[in-house]
Amino acid sequence: MVPLGYEYMWKAMWVSALVGAVCAFLSAYLMLKGWSLMGDALGHSIVPGVAAAYIIGAPFAVGAFFAGILASLGMAFVKQHSRLREDAIIGLVFTTLFALGLLMASLWPTSVSIQTIVLGNILAIPDEDATQVAVIAVVSFAVMAFIWKDLMVTFFDETHAKSIGINTRLLKIVFFTLLSACTVAALQTVGACLVIAMVVTPGATAYLLTDRFGLLVLIAIAFGALTSFVGAYLSYFVDGATGGVIVTLQTVLFLIAFYFAPKHGVLAARRKRQAVVEAAAETRAGAAA
């Protein structure tokens, strides 16, 4: 148990777990709405914000956050004023911002290591960044804990949500703001490419296990936190590829659920078919006797 002796190891594990938990919370909604690619989109949209932050000397997270908000509000705006489908809008907005980011990075070369943005490295995170990430995660989690039921109604049945006086537009803006903030946080633990896994896989796994939304959220959060905590620890042994390890763990859990889930799993479906066939055979045998 070598690495547990180091303080930075504990810090990395706790921060990862916080980020994993809040991303998993958001994933419960994203994957249900078919917005899974939104996580990917935001991860890429953030690049121009990061580049701009370096150019003007602002903190990395601030630039990323504003770019994220810009991207999600941009998507919401295009959606409202056109009949384009969500996937087209997401593709349109995020490639635009990503291209802008690359352009900026090539016009004003900076010392920002693209590798850090793309892969993330929680083990090497400076103290003040760790605090920043932890604060983002905790605040987002607290807000979600207050609005999770109203968000559930809004995403399930927006007409009803409006008819009981829920301000659905405000709620969606809050949700996408949190998503942007958490994407920025996840960027530092798992990197831009794997952010999408953080905001999809835990929710998708939990969806296979239950038909109750409340339980789904709990399962997703538990999975997200646990895989991130353990993943950060294991990543010490493979020299820093934290994102890879965390996402691999999440995928393993997903595959287990996919196969063994009691109601929606592959095995359960096969068993049910089998039962029907056997019952039919029995009736036939009974009739013949």
Partner: peptide
């Protein structure tokens, strides 16, 4: 109803949504 039929909510949860107000 323009709702997402695959949403993981039970019948009783849907009816409970009527009480939210």
């Amino acid at each position: 109803e323009d709702v997402d039929w695959n949403f993981p909510v039970l019948v009783e949860t849907v009816v409970m949504m009527g009480r939210y107000g």
